[in-house]
């Protein structure tokens, strides 16, 4: 096996770009699952929903899908608030969230999927952007804008979330809420409100990630299922409840995937990624940057 420099460089860059996208799809899970203990398995369905929202606005008005998704993220935020309200009333309040909450979100996953099928049909949808076909070349290395633009916005978003969580009072309350709700109340914080807002934030990131997804690849309603494994893998590999960890985990998986694809055979990429996850779970269950 040879490793020519140009191929290695390209594999690293491609892996980083891919990792940036993976970070965007997983950051929401890192909040809801990693910090709030809400096993939102329907997260990918909201990503797909985000894709379709970006798609419609792009098709009707020709606006850039990513810009649209950022502008419309408050809508997803409100959706998240509503969803958490239901979840709270039905499960958390009764103290039976874990397994039943999981099944609840499975149901939500299906319902969202079917709603999309009924509205949009089952065909693959794509968007065309101003930068979709542009590639910058720096020596031997390619920077396809189709991946670079989502990468940049994604990293900005993820870093923004991290700064928000560590540098605001609200953010610190989010970090604390799964550890000890009572203690949080004794600090004068309403944990349910904190969880609701944080969950809403996680759904808002899903909306934006959806726009990345449809810029990068064609989307159909059932595609979300493919991402269930990935989002949890990134979140757990990086370390539960750590946004930096999520970013790192996403990069690790992205680079692992692009290296496997380039040098060994793309068919083995999922086994390598999920093998890494298994190894992490077995030897360092707290993940790469877990606290």
């Amino acid at each position: 096996m040879e490793f020519p420099t140009a191929l290695v460089l390209n594999a690293i860059i491609a892996g980083l770009l891919l990792g940036g996208f993976y970070a965007a799809v997983s950051v929401g899970i890192s909040i809801s699952f990693g910090m709030l203990d809400v096993v939102n398995i329907a997260h990918p369905a909201f990503i797909i929903l985000g894709s379709y929202v970006a798609y419609i606005v792009n098709e009707r008005m020709g606006l850039d899908p990513i810009a649209v998704s950022v502008v419309l993220s408050p809508l997803f935020f409100v959706l998240g608030l509503l969803l958490y309200r239901i979840y709270y009333l039905c499960f958390e309040k009764r103290g039976q969230e874990s397994l039943r909450g999981l099944a609840f979100f499975f149901g939500i996953l299906f319902i969202t999927e079917v709603a999309l099928v009924l509205i949009f049909g089952v065909d693959y949808r794509m968007v065309q952007t101003a930068y979709s076909e542009t590639t910058w070349r720096l020596g031997p290395v390619d920077f396809p804008m189709r991946l670079v633009v989502p990468f940049l916005v994604s990293v900005t978003m993820v870093v923004g979330v991290q700064l928000f969580l560590t540098h605001t009072f609200f953010g610190r309350a989010v970090l604390a809420v799964a550890q000890d709700q009572l203690a949080l109340r004794l600090m004068g914080v309403n944990p349910t409100r904190v969880k609701g807002l944080a969950f809403a934030l996680s759904i808002a990131t899903a909306g934006v990630a959806g726009a990345f997804l449809i810029v990068i690849q064609p989307v159909q309603p059932a595609l979300g299922r493919e991402y269930i494994g990935l989002v949890f893998a990134v979140c757990v590999l990086g370390g539960m409840g750590s946004i930096w960890g999520t970013l790192l985990g996403a990069f690790v998986l992205g680079i692992a995937e692009s290296f496997t694809s380039t040098f060994f055979g793309p068919s083995w990429a999922p086994a390598v990624s999920f093998g890494l996850l298994l190894a992490a779970l077995a030897f360092k269950p707290s993940g790469l940057l877990g606290r």
Partner: peptide, 10 residues
């Protein structure tokens, strides 16, 4: 697979 460029480079 999301990104096919590694495959095509190989």
């Amino acid at each position: 697979t999301v990104d096919f460029s590694p495959i095509l480079r190989a």
